[in-house]
């Protein structure tokens, strides 16, 4: 009886989506960025968000992690309603989410090592067992920058910064990763490596991801589903092939077909 109940609960927990966004609204003055945005991301799913520059993709993921307060709608992340959380619970939830900034946002007064150590040292759950140093090195190896460990961010190229930003976003082995244009400004080979890294993480740790990108190759390889954002709504959702073969003029125009 007990076991059956546990199993039933286990199933219901597993079936709970990682991210549920309903009727999300955000405006800056008269500039309505998100009007009525709805999206559900299942556990272990990679969702790619595409859309024109300045359409509100970054705003969307900043709402998800609570950096920006939406004007309306509901946002449930890992089963928790973001708007009802107090500071402490929100911080705890954030440690389960990796965020890769479009601008990398590295701490420029810290070395690469300290940048990667920061989330580890701030982690109150003390989940990471073993040596911090080993962990940092592994994270750097994942993005192919092991020998940059003692450099300052100002000594890195734009692409290197981007990769350190990704390594930092992933260092706590988060359950959800929000990538803001992880391959923009990178060469094709590094882009491909990042693409593989994202896929590998999804396989290895069952991470759920939202990936914002303009990189068609990245989208094709990683997306279980692509969401096309325009006019403040999730205008169209589907697999890569579905979006490529659609007759919708707006999307055809975006992909220049």
């Amino acid at each position: 009886m007990d076991t059956a109940l546990n199993i039933a609960q286990g199933v219901s927990v597993a079936a709970q989506p990682a991210i549920e966004i309903a009727h999300l609204r955000k405006a800056f003055g008269s500039n309505v960025v998100l009007r009525d945005f709805n999206l559900t991301v299942q556990n272990g799913e990679n969702v790619v968000v595409m859309g024109k520059s300045g359409i509100g993709k970054t705003i969307l993921i900043k709402c998800i992690i609570g950096l920006i307060k939406p004007d309306g709608g509901t946002l449930r992340v890992l089963g928790k309603d973001i708007s009802t959380l107090n500071h402490r619970d929100l911080d705890e939830l954030r440690m389960r989410i990796g965020f890769v900034f479009q601008s990398s946002a590295l701490y420029d007064s810290m070395t690469v090592r300290e940048n990667l150590e920061f989330p580890l040292r701030r982690d109150r759950r003390n989940k990471i067992s073993g040596n911090i140093e080993d962990h940092v090195r592994e994270a750097l190896r994942n993005v192919g920058l092991e020998n940059a460990i003692d450099l300052m961010p100002s000594e890195l190229s734009g692409g290197m910064r981007k990769r350190i930003g990704i390594a930092r976003g992933l260092i706590l082995n988060p359950e959800i990763v929000l990538y803001d244009e992880p391959t923009t400004g990178l060469d094709p080979i590094t882009s491909e490596e990042i693409t593989h890294l994202i896929l590998e993480l999804q396989k290895k740790y069952k991470t759920t991801s939202i990936i914002i990108t303009h990189d068609i190759d990245l989208a094709r390889e990683t997306a279980n589903r692509i969401v096309f954002l325009t006019n403040g709504i999730a205008y169209m959702q589907g697999t890569y092939d579905e979006l490529m073969n659609t007759t919708d003029p707006e999307i055809k125009h975006f992909f220049k077909r």
Binding site: H87, R94, M95, F101, S103, Y107, F118, R122
Partner: peptide, 14 residues
């Protein structure tokens, strides 16, 4: 300006 404060916030640091 360079979003470093945001980055701290998403690392669970107030």
């Amino acid at each position: 300006v360079t979003e470093q404060i945001d980055a701290m916030e998403v690392s669970g640091t107030n």
